[in-house]
Design a protein around this nucleic acid. Structure first.
Length: 426
RNA sequence: UCCCCUGUAGCUCAAUUGGUAGAGCAGGUCGCUGUUAACGACAAGGUUCCAGGUUCGAGACCUGGCGGGGGAG
């Protein structure tokens, strides 16, 4: 069974569960570390094991631009290619419609079908990375070499099949913040059509695979080492559909209903954390929370910050991917576990975790532990002054130490949350 | 003792033929939510070594100090 709920909270929609993949089990609620280009930046895969990171998130667009999906497939898939031997999810590339556009004006140009191939940033003409969105798909420019790449739902699925992550995403359009109702409706409906095409492609690839496997089996059956790998091949990837709908309640509800009723293995909520306020972001999740499936895992794309997570778990979110702990770590922001002895009246994530900026001058002479209340390798072995020093002198180890610690704290947070649900506190 | 070079922001350096000083780094503050991110934004910071002089006007030119570097004896 791909997903099962082990404990359902009576206080909220929060639940403790398990996602079963062929590369391991993910205990949920869980954090998904971001490893866009096939690496959780600055962290060796073996350290991820130590941190107990359960799952990582790679990006199809980035892997298509480099090194290309063919070579990953040839290497035996993303797990083998990268050494990331934990469950992996891949994003479809849909987020890049938002993130590579950068400028609203560029989207407006796209909307009005006047495709300016150049746009200005600081009076400098730039080639756009997002060239065109149409019903068929999207044309991007590679951030690696500027070459033009086309993404359609079919291609995204094909790419993701070759990459070989355990959980893959249907191709969607991450709608920019500030889009009007009309555009949001149009884009959301397009995402729905893309979902059906993603599912069709996903199925047909599976059928083809099955056929070729059966053919191969005929030759293999008599072999001594033969074990029936059919199941593994047939169900080695799971497909999630993505909910859009922007900041409009009715569109969000239409979207969740559409996605949940479609034949997917899990659902993801997209189009959040694109510049809206926290309140708006939570609202968008709340609107759909009552319609989320009970028998399928629910992923929230791109969230969260420490103080977002608990509330969203209560809305029924099982997994979260976010660059926050890893990016902040590289920028010198270190999570700190607050003194657990202090009385915590209302149980929330913020009351548990703090942030400090290790680059601040005051840490230069501070020999205290990076985090007094943390038992990770970093906190057992290094002090603030040393970490500050590594950052100020741009020593590469800085990024590794900080990322290790932040991911460790993230895992702690989710451990508390799972425990809290199991013991009825959440 | 003499000769040459030099002195501008905490540091390293800019500043057209003299038109009342700019940048990088450091220091400071802030930001980062499906990673174009070991990133980005902002603010602050100077009686241009001192004292005279030339000039409408000097960081630039002149004189004399003082400090630094180099060379010759």
């Amino acid at each position: 069974m791909f997903f099962q709920i082990l404990h359902q909270s009576k206080k909220s929609r929060a639940r403790v569960g398990e996602i079963n993949t062929f590369n391991g089990i993910i205990k949920t609620p869980s954090f998904v570390a971001v490893g866009t280009k096939g690496t959780v930046k600055s962290i060796l895969p073996l350290l991820l094991k130590e941190i107990k990171t359960q799952c990582a998130f790679v990006n199809t667009y980035h892997l298509v631009t480099h090194p290309g999906v063919e070579i990953i497939e040839k290497a035996g898939g993303i797990h083998k290619y990268t050494g990331l031997d934990i469950p992996l999810m891949s994003d479809s590339g849909g987020f890049q419609i938002f993130s590579l556009a950068r400028k609203k004006s560029q989207i407006s140009n796209l909307k009005s079908q006047n495709y300016n191939l150049k746009f200005k940033i600081n009076n400098e003409e730039k080639e756009p990375f997002l060239i065109r969105i149409s019903d068929n798909g999207v044309r991007f420019r590679s951030v690696f070499d500027g070459s033009i790449i086309e993404f359609t739902p079919e291609k995204s699925i094909e790419y993701q099949k070759k990459i070989g992550a355990d959980i893959i995403m249907a191709f969607d359009e991450c709608i920019y913040y500030g889009a009007d109702y009309q555009y949001t409706k149009k884009a959301t409906e397009r995402t729905h059509r893309w979902l059906l095409r993603s599912i069709d492609k996903f199925k047909s690839l599976r059928v083809n695979e099955l056929k070729s496997l059966k053919a191969r089996n005929k030759n293999l059956k008599n072999s001594k080492n033969f074990k029936n790998p059919l199941n593994k091949i047939i169900k080695n990837q799971y497909l999630y559909g993505i909910i859009q709908g922007g900041v409009y309640e009715d569109l969000r509800k239409q979207s969740v209903e559409f996605v949940v009723s479609s034949n997917v293995d899990g659902v993801a909520i997209g189009g959040v954390s694109v510049g809206e306020s926290k309140k708006e972001m939570r609202e968008q999740v709340r609107w759909v929370s009552g319609f989320l499936p009970k028998d399928k895992p629910v992923h929230l794309l791109g969230v969260g910050q420490i103080d977002d997570i608990l509330d969203l778990v209560k809305y029924g979110i099982d997994t979260f991917d976010c660059v926050e702990p890893t990016r902040l770590a590289r920028m010198g922001t270190i999570y700190q576990i607050k003194n657990q002895k202090s009385k915590i009246k209302s149980y929330n994530s913020k009351s548990k975790i703090n942030q400090i900026d290790i680059l601040k001058g005051k840490y230069r002479f501070d020999l205290s532990k990076v985090d007094e209340n943390c038992d990770c390798y970093i906190c057992q072995n290094f002090n603030k002054s040393y970490l500050h020093h590594l950052f100020k002198t741009r020593e590469l180890l800085a990024y590794t130490l900080a990322t290790y610690h932040n991911l460790w704290v993230m895992e702690k947070l989710f451990e508390w949350i799972r425990e809290g649900i199991e013991t009825g506190r959440i």
